[in-house]
Design a binder for these strands. Structure first.
Lengths: 340, 340
DNA sequence: GGTTCGAATCGAAGCGGTTCGACAGATTCG
DNA sequence: CGAATCTGTCGAACCGCTTCGATTCGAACC
């Protein structure tokens, strides 16, 4: 394998000169620079990553720490992942994908071995164990998800409070007065899936302001359970005219549940979900929904992380970036049917 | 950060002795070994990955090269990915996830920089450009997907020929005599998505043997197009009593298409898909289906790759491992309705 | 016309591991 | 009992790259 010594020899200069010619960190005569560049091209020289890391203490690799649970909607994770790997590459970084269940162990192992320049954490929970480990580690980090205490790191998430309010407001202004919110399974919340209750609490508070009846239930994450859950809650609240779904599995199951009950949207019932347009089109989820903005969040997190790695961001101030929710209207929202 | 010199000093030995004590490559007295191990524990020593890579020419990292297309079912990719990262970690390897659209460029860059010990290629097509690059690179590779010429690499895939035959056989023995096969979009095939026509050709051949009418169509990968496609093909072949779906989006769209037409499975029409159980349960795909075995294939590929990295597998013989298709029966297969 | 300065280049050291050869001391063997 | 062998340890070299002085040379300055 060709190394910088080969390049230097081919260009007729010393190794250090070859290095400077490529990095531009010292002035090099145009003639020499061109010789070096030609040698690089002809020999197909690409620096040895390990050697460079050893010399510079930089690897140009970031770690992406995922957390995958059976009872959460794993496929949605891929959208975050792709946003992150793609943006990282654009900025000159490769991505180490870490999916170990022992997130804390993985974090310290990878940090101490200096394999990466920084961390992106996915699916961060309310009081995420990984945060403490993160703070004792030299590399910077960016989170996707909002923990209770985001001090010392940058956090990026959808504004779930605003999302809860937006859902309720939209149905309220369309004339609905009784609605059902279906959240993720309860143990997602217990595990610290803060976004679930951030949305639910905000929705509840806003419903109260408007004088709206809002029934809140937790739904399963898989068929056939979630289908039964939906049937049960529709039975329990026959007067509800709106359905808010903060649960992708519920959105996937709903069409056939509605068909079986002889209901259609939006004439009989209005529906607002929360998932991406990509998902809606792939999985036949024909409901208006708040986009989860996975790609955008991933990209923002990486950009911030990279600017920290390059010491471009102020070291002691950290951002919490909550992006505003938007409804993609697919026609499942309308005035409630007239009462009789 | 603590290095092996610190450990050696704490244990009162030389650096080389500390190294040997940890690697076990030379005999070391029990007393010294214990001192070194204690020092490691107390100091929290973890070797510097770059330095180790430089010295050993091994990184304990593998690269996972994905290819993601808008018109393929991206979320399914996550199942392969998780199988691979998890198994790799069990075997002591971390995984670099590479999603660049320029797969060949990424491959040569990463190979030449010696960042990884081997490659897993996902979504390998009939005449995959990356294969040529792969053969000129020192690291071994394992493929998920079957190219026309798998020489020099190990390939793992579902046996799509057998899958095509299995679908047809199953409906045939249940009494069906006319059926429709819905494949992935045509440009997936043109791009080299060999699995599409491997299944289709085998199904066609088997149908011919049985004297069955098999109509083959390519379907879109997203709503609302795929819904229209399904409607059109059902209109075109009103006598067909079986539907074979080698297209996940079609499976997702089918329930509402059938509901609209007033059809139900399996009494009016039998359906066999091809996707994982996990998908069926998450996305409400209530059809019997051949499991795509993503997790298993990913794990197999990694195991083989790691044994090559460790030079345990014979260097000049390579395997093609096609795993046998199995139908998960979810009750969408039955005898066709009586003719009238 | 000697000093000063800047441009261009080189040699050597260092990053943190692993590994080869040497060696001292204890054991075994003929 | 001297020679051969084994055990356990050490020092030095090396992996490939970056970077810090040091050096040379020509131009600018007074």
């Amino acid at each position: 394998m060709v190394n910088i010594g080969d390049v230097a020899r081919a260009a007729g200069v010393s190794r250090s000169t070859a290095s400077y010619a490529l990095s531009g960190k010292r002035t090099i005569s145009p003639a020499v620079r061109q010789n070096v560049e030609r040698a690089v091209r002809e020999l197909g020289y690409i620096p040895n990553a390990g050697a460079r890391a050893l010399a510079t203490s930089r690897t140009d690799v970031i770690a992406l720490l995922g957390q995958f649970f059976d009872d959460e909607f794993a496929p949605a994770m891929l959208q975050y992942i792709l946003g992150i790997t793609d943006r990282a590459r654009e900025l000159g970084f490769d991505t180490l994908l870490v999916t170990e269940s022992d997130g804390v162990g993985a974090l310290t192992r990878i940090a101490s071995s200096r394999m990466v320049d920084g961390f992106v954490l996915l699916n961060v929970s309310e009081s995420d164990e990984r945060l403490a480990a993160l703070r004792s580690v030299p590399q910077p980090a960016a989170l996707v998800g909002l923990p209770a205490d985001p001090r010392g790191v940058d956090a990026f998430d959808l504004d779930f409070d605003a999302a809860g309010r937006l859902m309720v407001d939209r149905l309220h202004e369309t004339g609905h007065r009784e609605m059902i919110l279906v959240s993720q399974p309860e143990h997602v919340v217990e595990r610290g899936g803060a976004y679930v209750w951030r949305l639910a609490d905000a929705a509840r508070a806003r419903a109260k302001e408007h004088g709206i009846r809002l029934h809140h239930v937790f739904g399963s994450s898989h068929q056939p359970d979630i289908g039964r859950d939906l049937d049960a809650v529709l039975d329990a609240h026959p007067a509800a005219t709106g359905l808010l779904l903060n649960n992708e599995a519920a959105a996937a199951a709903l069409p056939s549940v509605l068909a079986t009950r002889g209901l259609s949207t939006p004439s009989d019932i209005s529906v607002i979900g929360r998932y991406s347009d990509e998902f809606a089109r792939t999985f036949s989820l024909p409901f208006s929904a708040i986009d989860s903005a996975a790609d955008l969040l991933g990209r923002r997190a990486v950009e911030r992380l990279v600017s920290r790695v390059r010491s471009e961001a102020p070291a002691h101030s950290h951002v919490v970036d909550l992006i505003a929710p938007l409804i993609d209207d697919r026609g499942s929202i309308a005035a409630p049917p007239p009462r009789h």
